[in-house]
Amino acid sequence: MLERSSKARRSRVARALAAAGAAATLAAAQLVTPAPASAAVSRAELALRWAPIHYQDVDATGSHALGGQSDYITMVDFDGDLNGRNNWDRAGQSGTSLAAYGYYSVVETSTHWYITYLFFHPRDWTDHPFFETEHENDAEGVLFTIERDGSTYGVLRGAVTVAHTDFFSYTPTGSTWTGGGESVDGTLQLQASPHDSFQHPVTAQEAQGHGLKAYPQYNINGDGLIYYPSTVAETPSNGNDRDVRYQLIDMLAPGGLWAQRATPSLFASLGTFAGDTTGDCGSGTWSCSTNSANAPWGWDDGNDVPARGELASDPAKVAAEYFTIPSGLSRTYTYNPYANAAAALAEAARTAPPNVD
């Protein structure tokens, strides 16, 4: 897989999730039908409106693929607990659900909404023995910046996606934003959903390693899934199901992922999911690494200006760095729960091991 030449090659970093609460608490904040234009929009409604139609390539090759199920998106507690160190094995066990979920958080300023989406896989895997490292847990995603133009849901201006240890930036057709400190990597397409009345941005993830870019920079190659944002979570009927609804979970909800950030069974350190080498992880491949997946407050592109975790915790800085923005962009947050832990995030960024996801 080729990335921008200025970027480092993909690698794997640590992820950890913690068991300080019931699995059901992570599913808090289920979404409702988007508000009519006359109503004030909630953060949950805003997240549902802009949630991406998501193309997921599926590979069924080899035993680590679980017949393609290793490429299904799901909850971090899909197996009913908040132990990140048993997810590799539990993904292959009968009785566990791989129903489709995505995570989101909304941060606000007076001029923009910033919506971060995370898609989780229990395995980051490979089907060949050369130069590729597997690991337990995988979490990559995208940041959408929405200008508050006076309309109910605002207008989408730009996106930054996470593909392993690299960030990629996109603008939709007609956006007033152009390249800034980083060049724009492509056009963010929008498509109609059969499950609501909106045009949604379109993202895609590769099979196995699950890097995420704007569609069609990644695409379905043979078998694959198309996930649509909804208020229900469906399990794919097979690895080539082209209409699967996924439900959103608020990372900032009480008991949610952010609240669990210090739970040692789930997170090995701030922003890094806990994962070990038990089971067949690494068997027949180059190796299996530990603690090698990141939550949004651990995402990092080490070649770019924003620091580790700032895509989630200081998205206005990310937008200002990646894009040239002709209209005003406030850097003062009116809602940002991540900011309460800014000092801890900064210290974690300073002391974190190299990002190897």
Results as ranks from 00 to 15, higher is better:
G298T: 07
T171A: 14
Y114L: 08
S289D: 15
L2H: 08
A341K: 02
A295K: 03
R245E: 14
R308M: 14
T109N: 01
N336D: 04
G80N: 00
A35K: 05
G80R: 01
A262K: 10
Q191Y: 14
N240V: 03
R148V: 06
E310N: 03
L17N: 06
D89C: 04
Q208T: 15
D138N: 15
A233I: 05
D57Y: 01
G256V: 00
Y114E: 07
T165N: 14
L225G: 13
S38D: 13
G298R: 01
G224I: 04
T25M: 03
L270S: 14
A24F: 01
L266K: 03
V356A: 10
Y335K: 12
P264C: 02
D77K: 03
S183R: 12
G255L: 03
T133Y: 04
A348V: 07
R12P: 11
H210A: 12
S313C: 07
L26F: 09
G21D: 00
T235E: 05
A341D: 15
L225I: 15
S5L: 13
D71G: 12
A352E: 12
S193F: 06
H164E: 15
R90M: 00
L329H: 01
T332N: 12
F119M: 14
S287P: 03
W113Q: 08
G154L: 15
L143G: 08
I325H: 05
P122F: 02
E108G: 09
L66I: 09
E310T: 07
V244S: 12
A29F: 00
S237Y: 00
L2F: 11
V155P: 01
E234C: 10
L26A: 12
G150H: 05
D149C: 05
F130G: 09
S169I: 06
S183V: 06
G102K: 07
D149M: 07
A253W: 00
S175Y: 06
G239A: 08
D149N: 15
R10M: 08
A65V: 04
G68Q: 02
A99E: 02
Q56D: 06
A348S: 15
I115A: 07
F119V: 12
S38V: 10
L143F: 06
G186N: 11
R15N: 10
A233K: 03
I53H: 02
R350M: 10
R9N: 13
N291C: 09
L98H: 15
G179T: 12
G302Q: 13
S63D: 05
G92K: 00
A19T: 02
S313E: 11
E140R: 05
G256D: 04
R10I: 09
Y55I: 04
A344W: 09
S289K: 03
P236A: 10
G92E: 01
G279F: 00
E132F: 07
A163H: 08
D196P: 04
